[in-house]
Design a binder for these strands. Sequence first.
DNA 1: TCGGCTAATGACTCTCCGGTCAGTTACCTC
DNA 2: GAGGTAACTGACCGGAGAGTCATTAGCCGA
Lengths: 217, 217
Amino acid sequence: MAEITAPTSTAKWRRRPEERTPEILAAALECFAKGGFSGTRMDDVAAVAGVTKGTLYLYFPNKEALFEAVVRSAVLPVLEMAQEHVAQSPDTAPELLGWLLQRWQETTLPTHCAISKIIIAESASFPDLARFYLEEVVARGLHLVGGVLKLGIERGEFRSVDIENTARCIVWPMLMANLWTQSLGLYAETIDLSQFRQTHYELLLRGLAPESAAERK
Amino acid sequence: MAEITAPTSTAKWRRRPEERTPEILAAALECFAKGGFSGTRMDDVAAVAGVTKGTLYLYFPNKEALFEAVVRSAVLPVLEMAQEHVAQSPDTAPELLGWLLQRWQETTLPTHCAISKIIIAESASFPDLARFYLEEVVARGLHLVGGVLKLGIERGEFRSVDIENTARCIVWPMLMANLWTQSLGLYAETIDLSQFRQTHYELLLRGLAPESAAERK
DNA sequence: TCGGCTAATGACTCTCCGGTCAGTTACCTC
DNA sequence: GAGGTAACTGACCGGAGAGTCATTAGCCGA
């Protein structure tokens, strides 16, 4: 009907093999974030990506492989950038910590949390996925934060602490806060994420302050 | 065949209407904890409970109602006991905090986390479940911890902080730690939960210490 | 403009699982 | 024991969704 007046293209679809992969990945991220792994239908992903289900299977062998590709493409670049910044920044350890928390929250936390949510929920059913995530994401993330802690301790900016567990105490509340906004938060008053970060950061700095030096605020 | 030699009871099954409900609840908790909500089949629950699927539907109208009943029976009694203890204990606020963390971890954290995992993962697909959990569990839990914080601040044992967000900073790392052991932790070296709690508690106490008084350790 | 290559479609199959219900069987009472 | 009742079974239904494949149709080179 109205199609007739369309000027240049009356084609129902176009061949665009190069663009498909990123488009499908973006669509899949969106769907997985919204519905989890088993809650997402391949038909939905296809619809969001503007193709049909059959096409998905030209680019990815199955649902699990699609999910792995989503994780890889969404998480790894960001982690690498952060690692680089930390390695070459002249800032103090407390400043670096603040930077990490803020950057993380402002750029990719929602994405990371959507993915974490799925991993937490479905790792029991998909061991390969779990192992992949552990090695590629968790290990690197903990290492990054642990590095900043070590640096601070060496420089005397932090008291001496259990690196691994403290790193977890730093990362996990932020993760949970975002998990929250993406799950139960949908049905309660939303929490102010940057204020939460502030409260958390302040608790941390005081908790990490060196023994004797009652640092001026 | 061999049935004939069975001494006292040749019956294939027995009528035990009183015992069924708790048995089904226990079986369901176990299954849900292992496989999540959508990952658990009613047939599995039935098998673990030693009945057939049809029987489940004599006691619970559907899967969602069964899950709600599981949550109710597993979480609420514990919460109430804790509330009572806090209300009538003569301890200081830091002591109460330590007690809460320890008690929680040692008694029911694994159960709570199994449930939280499901809620986090599937609240998007089951809004009723989410709302139920918010009102019955989360609100009360936060209120409990928030109460201890307020107490501490009034008494001058803690500095003045944002109650709600700080309560979250107290609870969430513990939750995440246990979520961890029940998901990715299955594939990595396990973390020492009581040492984690220790590190977390120490960070908290220093982070909450009153402004001026550089409290002795 | 024609032919062939392959990206893309969409209707199909097959399996899995929540929920149902007619029938079976344990138990209780007389 | 005979009969009545309600606890319990298990075969069944229907819908949903992962994965398949024969067919269609854009694109490109000659």
